[in-house]
Design a protein around this nucleic acid. Sequence first.
DNA 1: AAAATAGTGTCTATGAGACACTATAGT
DNA 2: ACTATAGTGTCTCATAGACACTATTTT
Lengths: 250, 250
Amino acid sequence: MTEKRSRSPEEQAFLSAYDSSQFPHPSVTVDVALVTVDEHRLRALLIRRTEHPDRGKWSLPGGFVGMDESLDAAAARVLEAKAGLSGIFLEQLYTFGRPDRDPRTRVISVAYYALAPTAALDVARGDPAARMATLDVSWSGERGGPARALDEQNKPLPLAFDHATILGLVVQRLRGKLNYAAIGFELLPKTFALRQLQTIHEAILGRRVNKDSFRRRMLASGLIAPTGAHESETGHRPAELYRFKRSGRT
Amino acid sequence: MTEKRSRSPEEQAFLSAYDSSQFPHPSVTVDVALVTVDEHRLRALLIRRTEHPDRGKWSLPGGFVGMDESLDAAAARVLEAKAGLSGIFLEQLYTFGRPDRDPRTRVISVAYYALAPTAALDVARGDPAARMATLDVSWSGERGGPARALDEQNKPLPLAFDHATILGLVVQRLRGKLNYAAIGFELLPKTFALRQLQTIHEAILGRRVNKDSFRRRMLASGLIAPTGAHESETGHRPAELYRFKRSGRT
DNA sequence: AAAATAGTGTCTATGAGACACTATAGT
DNA sequence: ACTATAGTGTCTCATAGACACTATTTT
């Protein structure tokens, strides 16, 4: 969408005389919530802070926005640096700017969320300061509110800054988008059984969904196509594998 | 949601040594799209730019975010300064941060949208550099894309910066929210006839809606209550006036 | 009385939930 | 053969659109 504008000499003179440093400016960062579904639970990548403030607490991976870098590019860079992932679903969530949200200085943070299948995250292991935490919300439906992060024993992990608020908004956004946007597929491998897709939806919504009408809805949506292949070694009748069709409905 | 944290002497020492000016920082602004529905059309407040860049083009009212001011507060301040309005619906939309979106310097803009009934805007008249422009989109449904701004003769008004993109996203967001959030009422006076509410919905959606099922849906929603009063001097049977009940559904 | 819109009753089409049933690989 | 899950057919219920009709005010 780059627009070419022709500028008069007068306008060009004005621009070069413009001094952007006459006022103090806030810092601008991106924070990225990398979310997956594993074992019927929503999980997000958290990083243990090694520096003040909130040292020892868990935070979303984040970083400063470069002066010549778009917000999307900054978020993708953070994701690549902290999780080794690229080319996955990444979308802006909300911008947080309370003056006191970071005690160091004024920091405005543009929050993003990213979605990836669990398998893709195996690549990203090895850092002891990073972990996939389970997300838990105390509210139902799309009411909204903060999220808690839990470890493997379902013990709460303390969250830094306002990241409980950010993670809560991620869950709310995912629930809202699930019914009209094709985000479930971002959390699955290229081919998948309908039952797996249903599990994704249930993890995001935090409730069981009706099997029959879920199947019918998905098949009628035109978003998925059967591959002919089937699961194997399941201990029961194997399900057919489907793949996601980009832009099915039109 | 202010959290109190206790900080160790060590942490406090770290904080006071922190130098936030070691890197260049972008400018952060808010831009506010003040939207209303008038004569079956979506309209937005635009201001003619008197300075470079894009002098003479039309832009959303905006301003820099103060160092000790939340984003919401900055948007409310801009709305008060440029339109004399306060206490109306105001919500964050999206943050725009392309490095080249403003030729002066790096400007990251947090866009907001505000909703007010047409009557409230009469207060805001008098500034010849300000006008309510009609919004027009070439796409249907919630597909998204840029918006055009039209004057009283339906001639396009040139828009500054990326404000066509911002206004397009406003329309898209309004269409998406209409079916699950009570935003129609923000565009009407305290009491209103069902037909007026339907007109609001039609202006936002850009298409006609079924009268019968619209009435039933609204009455069944629990969001509105009859007042017993009726319109008068209509030239036909007067409609009953309703009022918006905050939190009807629970 | 005519005009114009408000408001009601009923039929139909669609989509989701419920439930009963059949199908099939692994053990 | 048994188990567990995949997948199908049918019924019911809720909701939206369509349509016909009645109600009420101004001119």
